[in-house]
Nucleic acid binder design. Structure first.
Lengths: 214, 214
DNA sequence: TTCCTCGGATAGCGCCACTATCTAAGCAGC
DNA sequence: GCTGCTTAGATAGTGGCGCTATCCGAGGAA
């Protein structure tokens, strides 16, 4: 498969594919001679993943490169690779520790993890970028005077744990060993828009049931 | 309160506040004379909401203007205002109807709503931007060969319905009538990062429990 | 009167995801 | 071989977005 074929089968322009190659999101094709390179189904699949991450998941190109780099790092074991890939995903701003809303948010998040009994997350808390994102988001809500505390968040945490269990079950039954890391990344990034849309739909539905459409 | 005070109390630079005023995200202050305008706590609160939408919720400025316009539209009843505001939120790309993955995704989403018994959503389906977003996201997953069908999504839908019920309960108990529309917007936009972070944390936690940290 | 500060208008910046253009090498048909 | 089209690769440019820096004239304080 040549670049033009890859473009046709993926629906991505050759110019954009070249851009992804330059940026290291897509491994180079097998060079046949000075003007021809050969691509295979693996390239096609990777290209679709890249597009999904960037367009559906809104992941910045630089972040996608980093994440995919971890996915491909054969020198690491599966668990580490997965962790590293997920670790690289969030790109939220640093919280401003001088802001009292941030301090309060951190306290509540720590209490939340204790309430939920998420020991691993508590241990990793000081380092985890996801933990940081949560603090930033909670701080923003508290700044708007919403009493968003650990007790209030705990049921949400439980529900998301149920969601996560489903994700992992699905992963175990449907993905081959080789695909699991890739699938976990897809799950973390692409299930998100699905969950968000379902959440909004559920809000609309329940709101209509409670208050009518008017 | 003058512009400089508003800036100090919110932590947003005067240049940025002026930008928001220009863009209509913030109503103009009460003009005292040619060189002075007076702002009040309402402005401060609105400014914080704007920052939260843009920075935490990643809502584009143009979309935020539209959403806030609906929130402020006193000519409409509460339910309509809320619906209009939420309706304006998602800004996903149009699905390409010629793509078979999109067609298949639409079928599965329609089946999903039937399975869940979400009648309101089914009725509004052809118009709703949220519905469209869901189709786009599911199509992306299907293109990656994940067998993402109605039966698989239904439990996620049930879980998100539980989340939505909590949202609405919270809204009923904690928000005054006047704040409800604003709060619903905040819920739709700002709970999202919280849910996402909880989801990721739950994935990490459950993954560590199942497979160890290694 | 002098100087500083204010609000408002305008133009510009920096980042990012592409995209258009150019070049030289190959290959197909004659 | 020669012509002409296509290819891969390099480089510079584009458009949108969220600010941000600068300038201007009006007030207010010393």
């Amino acid at each position: 498969m040549r670049l033009a074929d890859l473009s046709k089968r993926s629906g991505v322009s050759t110019a954009t594919i070249k851009y992804y190659l330059r940026e290291g999101l897509l491994p180079p094709g097998r060079q046949i001679n000075a003007t021809t390179a050969e691509y295979d189904d693996g390239h096609l699949r990777r290209l679709r993943l890249v597009r999904a991450l960037i367009q559906v998941g809104k992941v910045p190109v630089a972040t996608a490169r980093e994440v995919l780099g971890h996915v491909d790092d054969e020198s690491l074991g599966r668990t580490i690779r997965l962790g590293a890939a997920l670790w690289a995903l969030p790109q939220d701003a640093e919280p401003d520790e001088a802001d009292p809303a941030v301090t309060a948010a951190r306290t509540e998040v720590d209490r939340l993890l204790e309430l939920l009994g998420w020991e691993t997350s508590r241990e990793l808390a000081p380092l985890s970028p996801v933990h940081r994102s949560l603090v930033v988001a909670v701080a923003a809500l508290r700044r708007l005077d919403y009493p968003w505390d650990a007790e209030l968040m705990a049921p949400y945490g439980e529900l998301m744990m149920q969601v996560a269990r489903r994700d992992l079950d699905f992963m175990e039954t449907h993905a081959s060993e080789a695909e699991k890391v890739e699938m976990a990344v897809a799950a973390a990034v692409l299930f998100q828009p699905v969950l968000r849309a379902l959440h909004r739909l559920a809000q609309e539905e329940e709101s209509a049931r409670r208050y009518g459409i008017e």
